[in-house]
Amino acid sequence: MTSLTLRNIKKSFGATQVIKGVDLEIADGEFVVFVGPSGCGKSTLLRMIAGLEDITEGEIYIGERKVNDVQAAQRGVAMVFQSYALYPHLTVRDNMAFGLKVRKVPASERERRVREAAASLKLEALLDRYPRELSGGQRQRVAIGRAIVGNPQVFLFDEPLSNLDAELRVHMRSEIAALHQRLENTMIYVTHDQIEAMTLADRIVVLREGVIEQVGTPRELYESPANLFVAQFIGSPRMNVLPARAVAGRLAARGLNIGAAEGVGMRPEHISLTAPESGLLRGRVALSEYTGAATLLHVELEEGETALVIANGPAVPANGQEVGLEIAREHLHVFDKAGRAIRPLVQAA
């Protein structure tokens, strides 16, 4: 079984610590996504698992085996790089067979495995081309094919879609999801794109400045973010966070006491529009952005804050119009001074 265990992993480059103690268990066959803003250490963590960075402190186990000092090639992992890292002087076939050749797999076996992988990725027609003759999407597929042929226990993906255009990115995303369903291998995937994280992951690991902020299923992260950072990182457009003093009074009037909270979060998609007098909040539409499926409203609140609201349906208020904003109590997120979520969210007064 190929579970993965990270125990108190730390990493320093010189005097700067970039990973500050990470503990994580990854189950066999799980698709885990590391997500976070750039510089959060997600790629470094992945590269430490791959064996491309040495481990300053802590232990990494792949299955039962401690791999701290096992060389990259002997860890049973394969990696898909951001730049694909296809050897420019080798054909697609030779690129895919390269690792097998290095490991002295017999030629007939090599050929069989390359054929299989190529067939599953629809690369047969491209086997004799060179990487420079391929499109971005094709290169991406070859990079995945190269990872598949080695039959690894764990797949590692380092921002594999970030060099593709938007349309292709969506397409390849679904291919990677299908790949996981088919192979059922453990996969670890690094991205800064929270949509990719949400759509692909069994579990998401949110990292910031070398520390895990939260681990959970996409739903857990979306519905009950552990802190302000996760709340604002997951979900698009970002969650509105209003200072507690701006809304505390009105909430209290409805029988909700938010106590020591510093901030109250509301996702734009959870806010509905009402008549100006009857809403929890009241404001004026400053800007409306029509996206086709919905309209994104920038509402200037009486308190001076701006809230984003997603309005569905045909009746969208015009710029300058007064509106009231309403939200169901189960959709309120409350955060304390340190940014930690307060749960249960809202207590009856």
Partner: peptide, 18 residues
């Protein structure tokens, strides 16, 4: 030379000499 190419080689099992 892009570093990732050499890292791919490393993952493929090449020694530094390789």
């Amino acid at each position: 030379i892009p570093k990732e190419l050499e890292e791919a080689g490393k993952m493929d099992g090449l020694s530094p000499f390789g």
